[in-house]
Design a protein around this nucleic acid. Structure first.
Length: 864
RNA sequence: GCGGGCAUGGCGGAACUGGUAGACGCGCCAGACUCAAAAUCUGGUGUCCUUGGACGUGGGGGUUCGAUUCCCUCUGCCCGCACCA
């Protein structure tokens, strides 16, 4: 049936507006604008070839911000690109024989096409793909600059080596000590790797977290803990051999508890510590023990709970304060080479790990700190007989010159003494390690270095950049194709012209994502990564949006890169992201058949509480993150085809706060679709009303709705500013409910109705851009909403003349009274006391006390 | 183990700095329109008893005239880190 109530034709409308926006260049960031800038960025996607609901949510959130800020008069930069290097492309090559580059570029094409129907306000003219030489050549240059200023270096380090795949594995790729794909036992190997000196900025990265006031506290805390600053002391313990002879060498130890030095009963070094290696030369059993420690990976939870084990080297260490006291030196499996100096001193009384170790190897336990208010002697006796270390604050005992000092004071005194004796000093230690960027992979950015037998590691000269990946590679054998390519790596040394080989490692793919936000500011310059003036104009990103899974590494690496790029003259900036928002995941119920296999939502039939699959009952599991393995995914393509982009966007925005997980439901998307039709009917009705100014005199009902219009503008603006998109939708729905209920026969009601529908269209435009443009057009406007400023509100309409206040007796609600907004306390009180319900409660008793908060509440306290 | 977060109707969620708990939506119930269905519209919907009340924001306690909101404690779930000396 064809009538004004005809359902909204999203297919036609959405395609039309997408075309119009593109044709008019509505979303191009204007480099010469005088408006204030606003840079909105969502984390760029990996081109997996398929859009998923997580993408839809992520880019919708960013789009709301971009469109809102544009309406608020900002010159908005909202670009899009592809995080295009990475392992899946190599897996595709392995499984299907397709070249990683071909696969990746095909996927980009497919995904770009999938993005279009979402109606995102993106500036596609700045699109980039990190796998193209035009992009990655700049990071090769940057890396060489980092090398020059000492922010990049090469060192030997321990890696997880998969002997079957001939490759290094990331910690996440090692499961129970075995390679994730090969299943082979992972070995600890020493390899020459390139590192970026992120630790150079440890303190600055930590301090500057304070300035990131528009980041979630959670993310700031995670970064804080990741950097892991701890204050302590380096203490040196002169080494003595088994016969008591000084070796002229000292063991460097890091401790946060120099106040407990008098409780020391052993020292321990890591299995990878030089002292261990040296001692093992004369002791095959020790060598075995060390080998055993290296074999057990350092990454899995099982190993972390493993029992503490040690091996006595036979060496002794001389106590820094007590020259006549010696303690044994162990090699221990729980001491990490990468932290501090790879060696510790053990004080079993005041460290639980040391306590366990001491009990196992029958070492002395000596109490040197006792809690205030307890008898030191009794406490010490109990502690030394038990298995639990005391780690709280207290008073030093049995500790010579430290006795009587509280822990903090004792730490200071111990450090002063160490310094005076030349045996140590106060120091700050970080958990943060330098960033190892070498990967033994093909599909990444080549590291621009040439290894020459006589000149060492030589940077590729500028004139020879970029070093591009060879196309003719095969993946039929394990290992890195660059390594076994017949010609690619064989070159002459740029310095001495002798035969040399290229570095065959490529960069960690976090490298590309650490600076793409700057490239977006001037994506077309060729001789530099970006134009500095342009970058400084747009950066920092005003609002960055992405998943919390990148809360530590990607964000920390980008913060580091921004500093490093500044150190090399590319920028003059510390922090790349002024505002950060982490969105929740998209979840769905899970379904399992009787045999335990997962079933896709589309194959489930539901009637009431019962769910079936082909007539057989199905177990409905809890809602979990959409994943291929649990088959609980919903294909955005199907949703877009069935309901359109606006419905998908509206549902994603309205059902949950954006930082929380969202549960995808059929009912939800259908509800969103129904609302769009409701909106459209309002627009069709309003379009019939001629555009006239609001009359001076309005009927009370019309005034009330007019008030509602202004309130909605105020509330929605505030909600959008604060990322409360779900609440913004609720406010708009309240407004349209009010409009639908308005009696149009009353004076001025038509004009208010029209204004209300127009306002609703403008308010919902950032959320559902297509239908709002269509409404705007239907209402007779010749301009686009993309170019229409955000509506204003009149604060006078936000307050009512009369206010309804709650009346309580003894804190319990007994009724409400409506009084003039300027009513004083006495007036409120007498109005409240006039309520029948109040009198009934008082039952003749006089109020003992009356609390009046004007405009809010009257609470009458009656005698009990 | 350490650190952080969350807990509100059948469901998703709202409630600004302590002041009418449950906005808005989903679902459900009843009715209207229809030959019928869909769509749409109207009304209802925290729980328990009879109008009027009583109870109610994970459990227990506290502060307050008044607590979803602040404090203590317990329970459950989620996330991060994980022998970091």
């Amino acid at each position: 049936m064809a009538s004004p109530e005809e359902r909204y034709n999203f297919r036609e409308a959405e395609a039309k507006w997408q075309k119009t926006w593109t044709a008019n260049g509505c979303f191009k960031a204007d480099d010469s604008s005088s408006k204030p800038k606003y840079y909105v960025l969502e984390m760029f996607p990996y081109p997996s070839g398929r859009l998923h609901m997580g993408h839809v949510r992520n880019y919708t959130l960013g789009d709301v911000v971009a469109r809102y800020k544009r309406a608020k008069g900002f010159n908005v930069l909202h670009p899009m690109g592809w995080d295009a290097f990475g392992l899946p492309a190599e897996n595709a090559a392995l499984e299907r024989g397709i070249h990683p580059g071909t696969w990746t570029r095909q996927n980009i094409g497919v995904m770009r096409d999938q993005f279009r129907p979402l109606g995102l306000s993106l500036d596609w003219s700045r699109e980039l793909a990190s796998c193209e030489p035009a992009y990655y050549k700049h990071e090769q240059k940057m890396f060489l600059d980092f090398l020059k200023v000492g922010l990049a270096y090469r060192k030997e380090s321990w890696v997880n080596w998969d002997p079957v795949e001939h490759t290094v594995l990331a910690n996440e790729q090692v499961i129970d000590g075995k390679g994730w794909r090969s299943g082979a036992d992972v070995e600890q190997r020493k390899l020459n790797q390139w590192f970026l000196k992120i630790t150079h900025y440890a303190e600055d990265l930590l301090q500057a977290i304070e300035t990131l006031d528009r980041w979630p506290d959670k993310v700031r805390l995670m970064q804080h803990n990741w950097i892991g600053r701890s204050e302590g002391a380096r203490v040196s313990w002169p080494l003595v051999d088994g016969a008591g002879k000084d070796l002229g060498d000292a063991l460097e130890v890091f401790t946060t508890r120099p106040d407990t030095l008098f409780g020391a009963s052993f020292c321990a070094v890591s299995a990878q510590h030089p002292v261990a290696a040296k001692a093992a030369e004369r002791d095959p059993a020790l060598a075995d023990f060390i080998a055993q420690c290296s074999r057990s990976g350092t990454s899995t939870a099982a190993i972390e709970t493993a029992e503490k084990q040690g091996y006595d080297t036979g060496l002794k260490a001389r106590h820094p304060f007590l020259p006549d006291t010696m303690v044994p030196v162990y090699v221990a499996n729980f001491v990490l080479m990468e932290y501090g100096s790879g060696a510790i001193f053990g004080c079993p009384g005041h460290d639980q790990r040391d306590m366990e170790f001491a009990r196992k190897y029958a070492l002395a336990v000596r109490c040197v700190v006792a809690p205030a208010g307890e008898d030191a002697g009794d406490f010490a006796a109990k502690l030394e007989a038990g298995d639990v270390a005391f780690t709280d604050d207290g008073m030093a005992i049995n500790s010579d010159f430290l006795n009587g000092l509280k822990v903090d004071a004792a730490k200071g005194a111990a450090i002063s003494k160490l310094k005076a004796l030349g045996r140590g000093q106060g120091t700050v230690q970080y958990r943060l390690r330098d960033w190892g960027v070498s990967r033994q992979r093909y599909w990444g950015c080549p590291i621009p270095i040439i290894h020459c037998a006589s000149c060492g590691a030589v940077p590729v000269p500028d004139r020879d950049l970029p070093v591009t990946l060879p196309e003719d590679v095969t993946f039929d054998r394990p290992g890195n194709p660059l390594e076994r390519h017949p010609t690619w790596k064989h070159v002459t040394c740029p310095t001495c012209r002798k035969d040399a080989v290229r570095e065959t490692d490529t960069f960690d793919t976090f490298f590309e994502s650490s600076w793409y936000f700057a490239r977006f500011c001037s994506p077309h310059v060729d001789d530099r990564p970006f134009n500095q003036a342009e970058a400084m104009k747009w950066l920092p990103v005003d609002q960055y949006i992405g998943g919390v899974e990148h809360a530590v590494l990607h964000l920390l690496y980008s913060r580091f890169f921004t500093r490093a790029m500044s150190a090399c003259g590319y920028l003059n900036l510390k922090e790349p992201f002024a505002g950060m928002f982490t969105q929740g995941m998209v979840c769905h119920e899970t379904y399992r058949a009787a045999d335990g296999t997962w079933l896709e939502p589309a194959t489930i039939t539901k009637s009431g509480e019962l769910a079936t699959h082909n007539g057989k009952p199905v177990t409905v599991g809890r809602s979990e993150k959409m994943s291929k393995s649990k088959k609980n995914t919903v294909d955005p393509q199907i949703i877009l085809d069935t309901f359109g982009a606006d419905a998908a966007r509206l549902f994603m925005l309205s059902d949950s706060p954006p930082d929380r997980d969202l549960e995808w439901t059929d009912a939800g998307i259908e509800g969103a679709w129904r609302y769009l039709n409701r909106l459209w009917r309002l627009a069709v009705a309003a379009a019939e009303i001629p555009e006239v100014p609001l009359p001076a005199v309005l009927a009370p009902a019309a005034t009330a709705v007019l008030r509602q219009v202004h309130r909605a503008v105020a509330a929605v603006s505030d909600d959008l500013e604060k990322f409360r998109f779900n609440s913004a939708v609720a406010r708009i729905r309240e407004l349209t409910n009010g409009l639908a209920e308005l009696d149009r026969g009353e004076a001025g009601a038509d004009a208010v109705y029209r204004l209300g529908v127009e306002t609703a269209a403008r308010l919902i435009n950032p959320l559902t851009p297509h239908i709002s443009e269509e409404m705007w057009l239907a209402l007779g406007h010749t301009t686009n909403l993309t170019a229409t400023p955000w509506p204003n509100f009149d604060p006078a309409f936000l307050v009512d003349d009369m206010v309804t206040i709650a009346v309580q007796v003894n804190g319990k609600l007994r009724g409400t009274v409506t009084v003039d907004k300027s009513a004083d306390k006495a007036a409120c009180e007498s109005a409240a006391l006039g309520l029948a319900a109040v009198q009934r409660q008082l039952d003749g008793r006089a109020p003992r006390k009356v609390i009046v908060v004007p405009g809010k509440i009257v609470n009458i306290v009656a005698a009990p």
